[in-house]
């Protein structure tokens, strides 16, 4: 099949795509974007998380038909145009939310999806927002700290821009 979609802000047309391929396989094996990880292949660990039209999706369970004509954002697409880290990524570093790092790309994506949906989440809402993502290293506490801080910073920035 032929596949047309927007990947990290750039329109992309791919030919000779096997329909059976999952989005995760396409990203990792054909496009060389290895930020999204294979943790379970059954959609329970969240390491493969990406955004499809701004909403959280497990790319290991996303058939390509669901991507055709849509917009996909991976961890590689979160940084600014000059390569700067997003506020969320910076907060992950500042709050010690990264240990082995294998869950981190998916976790950052899940947090991004949450903040787009709910810009001012409580800590309990943050925990629910990342409940589809397993982290075996951190016990989640510093991840919740990071997301909470990034949310506050985003709101402050928007306030400045509005004012």
């Amino acid at each position: 099949m032929e596949l047309n979609f927007i990947l990290n802000g750039k329109p992309l047309t791919l030919t000779e795509v096997d329909e059976e391929t999952t989005l995760l396989q396409l990203l990792r094996d054909r496009l060389g974007l290895t930020g999204a990880k294979r943790g379970c292949d059954t959609g329970v660990c969240g390491a493969c998380s990406v955004l499809v039209d701004g909403r959280l999706a497990k790319s290991c369970r996303t058939p390509l038909a669901q991507v055709d004509g849509h917009e996909v954002t991976t961890i590689e697409g979160l940084r600014g145009p000059d390569g700067d880290l997003s506020a969320l990524q910076t907060a992950f570093l500042e709050y010690g939310a990264v240990q082995c790092g294998f869950c981190t790309p998916g976790m950052v994506i899940a947090a991004e999806a949450l903040l787009r949906r709910n810009p001012h989440p409580t800590r309990a809402e943050i925990r629910r927002g990342i409940a589809g993502n397993i982290c075996r290293c951190t016990g989640y506490q510093q991840i919740v700290d990071a997301i909470e801080a990034a949310a506050a910073q985003r709101l402050a920035q928007e306030g400045e821009e509005d004012g």
Binding site: T34, G35, E76, V98, C100
Partner: peptide, 12 residues
């Protein structure tokens, strides 16, 4: 801060 943090948080 973690010396490996940047590479991990960017997916690189």
């Amino acid at each position: 801060r973690s010396v490996d943090g940047w590479a991990r948080v960017t997916g690189e």
